[in-house]
């Protein structure tokens, strides 16, 4: 079967690999370059691959071999022996019912005790899902910590805000919106301040930030699973998988003219959980 052409081809493949490996070393020493590294490594590996496969296909002569397969399991006799060996030992232990009960008790107690370190993995939920860092009188601040004046927001303007000193608090993130004049302000009157309304920025479906505000429709939109919330209808979900409105944060203005929250959210923010109704 051996033909010079095949031998030459295989040798060429290995040769490409050798040259590419040398090239790879040179590129690395020169400071490295991602695309060249990938290309040369690919060629170095690919050359060996092509060479090996061609060698096996064309120059290895053995061909097809037939091997017998045990269709029926051949150890039927031993099955009884396995069962007997097990039962023999089990009886030995089981005969001593008093001791084996104590052993079971000891293993059970140890197993329970071994579960306790799981508790160390984290704090319990307690009531942390029912509260955020908003308190009566907490100023709304931007991500950089600066407080917000009502006049900063033009009509249809939106702003992501956090409680003052809690700009890292993920579940307190809030969207403040100024609706254009003429729009009916949603929610109870005491929840809005100087035309501003604020809603939790955490989607009630799977917790993504409801990051997009569509000025035409006054809808807040979650880019993760496409839930849309109608701000004019106190942020109730109008499409997508979300089932609950975004909770509204009651707003006020303090005597220095900065926007504040007048209390925490009246209900848990974010996605649902088993005992959410408890709060």
């Amino acid at each position: 079967m051996k033909t010079p052409a095949q031998t030459k081809g295989i040798a060429a493949a290995f040769g490409v690999s050798v040259l590419s490996s040398i090239g790879l070393a040179v590129v690395y020493v020169q400071g490295g370059q991602t695309q060249l590294e990938g290309l040369l490594l690919g060629l170095a590996l690919g050359g060996i691959s092509v060479g090996l496969v061609m060698w096996a296909k064309h120059l290895m002569s053995e061909g097809e071999v037939v091997e017998a397969r045990e269709v029926v399991p051949l150890q039927t006799d031993e099955r009884e022996e396995v069962a007997e060996a097990y039962e023999h030992g089990a009886e030995e232990i089981g005969r001593r019912t008093f001791l084996s009960k104590w052993l079971a008790g000891a293993l059970g107690a140890l197993g329970l005790a071994a579960l306790f370190p799981i508790r160390s993995l984290g704090v319990g939920p307690e009531d942390s899902l029912f509260h955020t860092a908003w308190r009566p009188g907490t100023r709304l601040v931007k991500a950089d910590g600066r407080p917000v004046r009502p006049s900063e927001l033009p009509p249809n303007g939106v702003l992501t805000v956090f409680p003052e000193n809690h700009t890292h608090d993920a579940d307190s993130q809030t969207m403040v919106i100024r609706l254009p004049t003429g729009d009916q302000i949603p929610g109870p009157d005491e929840f809005s301040a100087e035309g501003l309304v604020a809603f939790s920025k955490i989607c009630t479906h799977a917790g993504c930030p409801v990051g997009l505000y569509q000025t035409q429709t006054r809808q807040l939109f979650c880019p993760c699973h496409q839930s849309a919330f109608d701000v004019l209808e106190h942020a109730k979900p109008v499409s997508g998988p979300a089932t609950r409105p975004l909770p509204q944060l009651p707003l006020g203005v303090d005597n220095e003219g900065f926007v504040i929250a007048t209390s925490d959210y009246p209900e848990p923010v974010g996605p649902g959980f088993w005992d959410r109704g408890r709060g």
Partner: peptide, 18 residues
């Protein structure tokens, strides 16, 4: 053949990675 496949898979992944 199987080693050829290993080097081939690795080679293609190296090309993709680079």
């Amino acid at each position: 053949k199987s080693m050829g496949l290993f080097f081939g898979v690795f080679g293609i992944l190296a090309l993709l990675g680079g």
